[in-house]
Amino acid sequence: MLIVDDHPVVRDGLHGMFAGDPGFTVVGEAANGDEAITLGERLRPDVILMDLRMPEVDGVTAIRRLAERGVPSRILVLTTYDTDSDVLPAIEAGATGFLLKDAPREELFRAVRAAARGQAVLSPSVATRLMGQMRQPASEPLSQRELEVLGLIARGSTNREAAAKLFISEATVKTHLLHVYAKLGVKDRAAAVAVAFERGYLTTLRSY
């Protein structure tokens, strides 16, 4: 595990907490996103515990760059903030999970283990916020990235294949698909592709 936080006291506390449990190994610490990218590429830990608001390079940028560089580590955001401007960009950048720093010790341990297995982990407040986003009226058009993901899905790509072709994480592909489902008012991939064709979204499929 790699711990990323700009506050030394927080890093020390997390390091001591995880080092005290034989089920975890802390392989490094980083004080900002730039260090996180460097160490993430070199160490490739199973899980990166990532703060968001840091100097120089912030957490969301670090998450995105790690995904672009093919670092397979699962990234679990641990932050004080759960606003839309923090949650959605982090999830879309490729974070596997999102927890708040007031999470109990055992909840944090469970979250790291789940993230290592590739399972999505969200604190209750974050899950509620995301569900609220999914339930909003489907009045906005699909974004360019959503069209790219849907175009690849329409061609038969799996989530993993689409992620590899677009240089993003599989978790980010899933998030884009959830947004597509909400905007098109559908519940699965096949329906999304069918409705997208009906509405003319995929007429430029050859450009993907």
Rank of each mutant, 00 (worst) to 15 (best):
residue 199 R to P: 05
residue 22 P to D: 09
residue 172 T to E: 11
residue 118 G to F: 08
residue 4 V to N: 00
residue 145 R to Y: 11
residue 79 T to P: 04
residue 103 A to K: 07
residue 157 S to M: 12
residue 71 V to D: 01
residue 81 Y to F: 06
residue 8 P to Y: 01
residue 17 M to Y: 07
residue 60 V to I: 07
residue 174 K to L: 12
residue 5 D to G: 01
residue 29 E to L: 06
residue 52 L to D: 02
residue 75 I to P: 01
residue 120 A to N: 11
residue 136 Q to G: 06
residue 191 A to Y: 09
residue 18 F to D: 03
residue 201 Y to L: 05
residue 93 A to E: 08
residue 23 G to Y: 05
residue 44 R to I: 10
residue 184 L to Q: 04
residue 101 K to G: 01
residue 100 L to C: 15
residue 120 A to W: 12
residue 12 D to Y: 09
residue 48 I to H: 00
residue 21 D to V: 14
residue 29 E to M: 11
residue 42 R to F: 15
residue 127 A to N: 12
residue 54 M to I: 10
residue 10 V to E: 06
residue 160 R to E: 15
residue 160 R to Q: 14
residue 56 E to K: 10
residue 120 A to T: 15
residue 182 A to W: 06
residue 81 Y to L: 15
residue 154 A to H: 05
residue 102 D to Q: 14
residue 36 A to H: 04
residue 185 G to L: 06
residue 192 A to T: 03
residue 164 A to G: 05
residue 101 K to N: 09
residue 158 T to L: 08
residue 113 R to P: 05
residue 10 V to M: 04
residue 53 R to L: 08
residue 49 L to K: 01
residue 175 T to S: 14
residue 204 T to N: 15
residue 78 L to K: 00
residue 44 R to P: 13
residue 145 R to D: 14
residue 60 V to R: 00
residue 82 D to W: 01
residue 170 E to G: 12
residue 97 G to C: 07
residue 70 G to I: 09
residue 47 V to L: 09
residue 136 Q to A: 11
residue 126 V to L: 04
residue 126 V to G: 03
residue 97 G to I: 07
residue 208 Y to T: 15
residue 169 S to K: 08
residue 204 T to D: 11
residue 128 T to F: 15
residue 9 V to Y: 08
residue 176 H to G: 07
residue 66 L to H: 01
residue 192 A to D: 01
residue 58 D to T: 04
residue 175 T to L: 09
residue 120 A to R: 13
residue 79 T to C: 05
residue 105 R to L: 13
residue 152 L to G: 06
residue 164 A to M: 12
residue 40 G to K: 00
residue 126 V to Q: 04
residue 196 A to E: 03
residue 151 G to W: 01
residue 103 A to P: 08
residue 140 E to T: 14
residue 93 A to P: 01
residue 108 L to E: 00
residue 53 R to D: 13
residue 53 R to Q: 11
residue 190 A to V: 11
residue 6 D to H: 02
residue 91 I to N: 03
residue 129 R to K: 02
residue 87 V to I: 13
residue 174 K to C: 15
residue 193 V to P: 00
residue 162 A to M: 12
residue 155 R to E: 10
residue 30 A to M: 02
residue 177 L to S: 04
residue 173 V to D: 07
residue 15 H to I: 14
residue 140 E to V: 14
residue 120 A to K: 10
residue 13 G to H: 03
residue 83 T to K: 08
residue 155 R to C: 14
residue 38 T to N: 11
residue 17 M to P: 03
